[in-house]
Design a protein around this nucleic acid. Structure first.
Lengths: 351, 351
DNA sequence: CTTGGTTGGGAAAAGGTTTTCCCTTAGCGT
DNA sequence: ACGCTAAGGGAAAACCTTTTCCCAACCAAG
């Protein structure tokens, strides 16, 4: 009498019709019994439930979707093959949705128009309830037009169409976090080394950097823009500590706020090579909190985390509410970053 | 007469019934016209086609799936949140399948039983045609039981159930590639620094390392096992070049084959710090070909690439043939690695 | 003029579930 | 005994497409 026995894994799925037949009722009654609808004796309901359980009945989602015009499926478009940024976003989305019974189609479109159209068509054919677009850059479009597809669209960490809903990280806020942290620790000459000027985030972060220093009455050094690489971190240290930049002012930086963790890694290595101690002589903060890099630097790197998984969760939940018919304001929502403190900044002067 | 006009993007998808009505035929005829089935005048067929085109008709996949008992959908299970290994596999799978009209459900199960079951149930309910399991380690199971689910299952880069079909990288072959490359370049004292002994691949690669050296009649140094980190790379260099290990033999290594790129990075940095030139004094080869690391080392790192995207493609195509009813031998298929040559090994002695 | 074949197209079932509406029966009051 | 209500359950339509089978009309041959 193993009522909790594993239902035998059917080679061919068992249908409601079979359950109904075995329980001696019609499919209509069976359906109502299992969904808690309709009126029937508690006894009948229980018998049907038990039969379904015993047979391992699971309703065919396709049939349900067809009827309800709702597939409990969303499409996730990304062009980030490498996935450093979109993967956390994606797993945040997936986690938020799986609990609601919603599955996610993974659509990697690279930067290929044809591939993008292919995926969008496939998703639409499969009647996804909505689409989330994500990418590797906040300021670049995916190679597809998602406007007026007939399903709700949410943008996460990628450039939205005008009038759409988008979630992005608050880069300016993140930069403030970093610079203010330096200020609290008593650093006075804070430099900023970042990526290429072609990235919107570079300007957002640089402006926040300037703003904070101005507010605090500290000297603003012109941000050094280069590439997102370690090599540029090395080079930037050379410019900061050799060049006329510092000569003319007579003082060297005691802190460097870097545009990403790779630059920070290069900066830290370059500083050590010239005999400067991190954090005693110079504090360093990175951006992205790319764990594997941040923890491999010596000392481990304090870095700004964009909370991408949380961003993905928000995006997923918002899409769901849109699918549910609830209205939502179009616009760009900036989600706060957080500072992950490790050992590259030192402690406050006194403690 | 814009015959190539964009079909107006319908808020509510247009059905075959509407196409048929507008073309003045029955749905049966309309269906046959669009699918190239049945008999009718070329004129009728064309009229229907044109009507469908004009209305932007796209068949409802859910209805098709219900009828055909085939959803053109597969589930992709992974426990690799960070995605360094599974992301290439995943995008290989996705690329291989999108051209066949098959979409992929992304299911991130972490190492959580409950989450795994949730995803598997959802996939089964949605009548996936098959499942691909992938992970971050070849020698670890996902936290779910995929045996006898009623749909074909393929394992890619994760530990398979017995009797299943699996694709994994040929780690031994990859290691041979690296060591033989060193031999060809005239290196004589080749060391091996790898990860923890708890990883199966560590042993596979170490054994291949020993085999090649034995074949060539070169001295075999006992592999140094540690962690997968840069720090361990540093430490290993200390052991190799300071310890009694080398003292007792009187000679230092002129090549180091590393178990992954992070170790290699640590080794290269440590060598440079002790004034040894890479590649002139010591050649270094890594494993994984993690581009962002391999290209950030100075000099850029030669590394073994596991061809994970290709592995994903193979897995996807094999799953499809299984779904199509073609038989396939159970067992583990090892796919070859390839050596990506950069500058950390130098050139052959003479050219 | 009948027979047989061909051609163009339609009716209906199938796939699995949900939901609306209806029917039967029992219980109750008078 | 009659009428009414409520309870328990079923029939059928709906979702959308594909496919099998069938019908009507037309033509040619006998």
């Amino acid at each position: 009498m193993a009522s909790d026995a594993q239902p035998v894994s059917a080679k061919t799925p068992v249908t409601l019709r079979e359950v109904a037949a075995l329980a001696g009722v019609s499919v209509a009654t069976a359906s109502k019994a299992l969904n808690g609808q309709g009126r029937m004796t508690a006894e009948t309901r229980e018998r049907i439930r038990e039969t379904a359980q015993r047979l391992g009945f699971r309703p065919n989602s396709l049939a349900q979707s067809l009827l309800r015009r709702r597939s409990f499926t969303v499409g996730l478009l990304t062009n980030d093959t490498y996935g450093r940024f979109s993967l956390p976003v994606m797993s945040g989305i997936s986690d938020a949705l799986v609990d609601k019974g919603v599955s996610v189609f993974l659509c990697n479109v690279e930067d290929d128009q044809r591939l993008g159209q292919l995926h969008v068509d496939a998703m639409l054919d499969k009647r996804v309830d909505g689409i989330i677009a994500t990418g590797k850059r906040i300021d670049r479009h995916l190679p597809v037009d998602l406007s007026n597809l007939g399903v709700p669209v949410i943008y996460a960490f990628t450039q939205p169409d005008p009038g759409a809903i988008a979630f992005v990280s608050d880069d300016a806020g993140g930069a403030r976090l970093a610079v203010e942290h330096f200020c609290r620790l008593g650093r006075r000459r804070i430099a900023h080394v970042s990526g290429p000027a072609s990235f919107a985030v570079v300007h957002a972060r640089a402006q926040a950097y300037r703003d904070v220093l101005t507010e605090k009455g500290l000297p603003v050094m012109e941000p050094l823009l280069g590439s997102w690489s370690e090599a540029w971190g090395h080079e930037a240290v050379k410019q900061l500590f050799d060049g006329k930049l510092s000569k003319s002012r007579g003082e060297k930086p005691d802190a460097v706020f870097c545009g990403n963790d790779q630059i920070a890694r290069g900066v830290i290595d370059a500083l050590r090579e010239r005999g400067l101690d991190v954090p005693d002589d110079v504090g360093v903060i990175g951006f992205d909190n790319w764990q594997i890099v941040a923890e491999a630097t010596r000392p481990p790197l304090t870095s700004v985390d964009m909370n991408l998984a949380a961003l993905g969760r928000e995006a997923g939940l918002t899409l769901l509410s849109l699918v549910g018919g609830e209205p939502a304001e179009p616009g760009i929502r900036k989600l706060p970053c957080r500072l992950v403190v490790r050992q590259s900044c030192g402690r406050p002067p006194d403690g």
